[in-house]
Design a protein around this nucleic acid. Sequence first.
DNA 1: TCCATATTTCGAGAATACTCGAAATAACGA
DNA 2: TCGTTATTTCGAGTATTCTCGAAATATGGA
Lengths: 117, 117
Amino acid sequence: MEKEDALNALAALGQETRLDVFRLLVKAGKEGMTAGAISDDLSVRPNTLSTHLGVLSRSGLVQAERDGRSICYRASLEAMQGLVTYLLQDCCGGNPELCAPIVSLVAGGGCEPGGAC
Amino acid sequence: MEKEDALNALAALGQETRLDVFRLLVKAGKEGMTAGAISDDLSVRPNTLSTHLGVLSRSGLVQAERDGRSICYRASLEAMQGLVTYLLQDCCGGNPELCAPIVSLVAGGGCEPGGAC
DNA sequence: TCCATATTTCGAGAATACTCGAAATAACGA
DNA sequence: TCGTTATTTCGAGTATTCTCGAAATATGGA
C-alpha cells in the first residue's frame, strides 16, 4: 500500500459517521448492506450518507455493487489488511524488537475462529 | 481502546504532515526526536509543526518529554498497538473466519527481529 | 540579570469538509 | 409508458482545519 492510499484510508476512517459505517459493514460481513439499510441503521440522511460512502469507496475501504434498485456496500478486508500491514511495517522498520509485542498480541489473543475475539 | 480514542488517532494520522511526523518518529525509535529536528527534517515551520505535534500528542500517538531547552517527541507503540487491535477487533467481531489471513500475514511475514520486515 | 535558543500560543486568512434540501439518475413492475 | 423506490449529484451555507507571522513562554548560559 502506498502512502497516499494509507493517507486516504486513515482520513476516511477519521470521521465519526464514516467510522460508524465502516464498522457496521465489517459487522455485516460478506453479505454487506444496502445504502438504505445503512441509512436507517445509523439515522443518517441518504444524501449525506451517499457522500460518505463515496469517500469510503474512493479510499478502497468499501466496495459497491448494484443489486437491482439497491446498491450493496461491503467492507474490503483486503484494504483493511493493507492498512494494518502498512502501519505495522512502519512500526517494524526502525524497531523490530519493539514490534514483537504487537504481533504476539494480535496473533495470540486476537482471533480464534469462532472465538469471541 | 474506546471509539473516541480510535477516532482521534485515525483523524490525526489522516493528514499528510502528521503521518510524515509519526512515521519519522517511528523510525527514530525510542530515542525520539526534538521538535526542531523534526522541523528541519520535514521542512515544516516550527509553529505549524507545533500545532500538529499537539494534535498527535492529544491523540496519544506520540509522547512529549522536555529535555533542557528542547522537547523530545516519541511515537507511542502502545497507542499504535491499541489502534491496530481496535481495527482488528472490528474485523474479527463479525467475521472471525475472514480475519485469519490478516493475522497470519502479520504474524508470519511481518517482523522477524532484525529482518527486513 | 540579560541574552540567545527552542518551542508554543495567539489571531487571522484561506482552504477544505460536512450537512442539507432539491433535483437528477437508475431500476423495477404495472 | 408511467409511477414508485433507491440512490446519487448539485449548490449553498456553516463549520472545521490548515498555515502563517508575530508575540509569548521556558530553559540554560554568560
